[in-house]
């Protein structure tokens, strides 16, 4: 227990010191990334200006998966040994992950409108992303339903790990199913022939989003540590 509080005692001020760095990095990288994506990157030969929503869509899709991966690491940590920080981190991450997944779906739909002429198509990527959103929502619902924090974190850990085994299978089954029923999608962000300017903008935005996640999560974990002390 003593050791336990110690790790919180180290974490709390450390997180406080790191937060502004992540916050500023998020803002600066985001401004650069948007400028790069909206003004410097060349216009797409096929999709025109509309493709530029990709600079939000693709990084948020990455984030939706990366946050799940981070949550899985927290979950395994919690199942193997007690860790208050991992518990707070896990429980706070799910809603951020769900928000990024939702953002991916909204931007995908906006992008789809000029491409497909409709707001929604049951394309393989959108479908998997929608299922991922439902997985996130299930995790959030389970976490909220259990009043005791530690127990909630353990139950959510179990579900997260089961989900992480399931997610690749979901992706695979949806891909297979849609190839049986629909022609290949046009939802490909340039593939290997992506323009270097576009790639730079994408990477900048992805870095910015990652910083945003860490900024937000450190903030939330700090709040939880404070609440728990009282």
């Amino acid at each position: 227990m003593i050791k336990h509080y110690d790790s919180l005692k180290i974490f709390y001020p450390l997180a406080g010191r790191l937060m502004p760095w992540f916050g500023w990095a998020f803002a600066l990288l985001g401004i650069f990334g948007l400028y790069w994506g909206l003004f410097l990157a060349p216009i797409d030969a096929v999709q025109g200006e509309a493709y530029r929503i990709m600079f939000v869509h693709v990084p948020s899709a990455w984030m939706s998966l990366m946050i799940y991966a981070v949550m899985t690491i927290c979950a395994i940590t919690i199942l193997l040994r007690r860790s208050k920080i991992a518990e707070y981190w896990l429980l706070s991450s799910s809603s951020i992950g769900a928000s990024f997944t939702f953002l991916t779906l909204v931007t995908g739909s906006l992008w789809g409108r000029p491409m497909w002429g409709t707001w929604w198509v049951w394309d393989a990527r959108l479908t998997s992303e929608l299922i991922l959103l439902f997985v996130y929502l299930g995790i959030i619902a389970l976490g909220n339903a259990i009043p005791e924090k530690r127990k909630a974190a353990q139950a959510v850990s179990m579900l997260t790990v089961v989900g992480s085994i399931n997610l690749p299978i979901i992706k695979f089954s949806v891909d297979w199913w849609t190839t049986l029923h629909q022609p290949a999608s046009i939802f490909r962000a340039g593939g290997s022939a992506i323009h270097p300017m576009m790639l730079t903008a994408l990477l900048l935005m992805a870095a910015s989003f990652t910083c945003y996640y860490f900024w937000l999560i450190l903030w939330r974990v700090r709040i939880q540590i404070r609440e728990n002390k009282q």
């Binding site: 299922i131 439902f134 997985v135 929502l137 299930g138 619902a141 389970l142 339903a145 259990i146 139950a155 179990m158 579900l159 089961v162 989900g163 399931n166 299978i169 979901i170 695979f172 089954s173 949806v174 297979w176 199913w177 049986l180």
Partner: peptide, 29 residues
């Protein structure tokens, strides 16, 4: 995981349905 919770029934559905999609899709394939 939802045993003993008030909203256990609906929670069970919400948790399982998205994770069960591969079973559904493979079967229908």
């Amino acid at each position: 995981l939802s045993a003993g919770l008030k909203q256990g029934g609906i929670l069970l559905m919400l948790i399982t349905l998205p994770l069960a999609t591969p079973i559904l899709l493979f079967s229908l394939t």
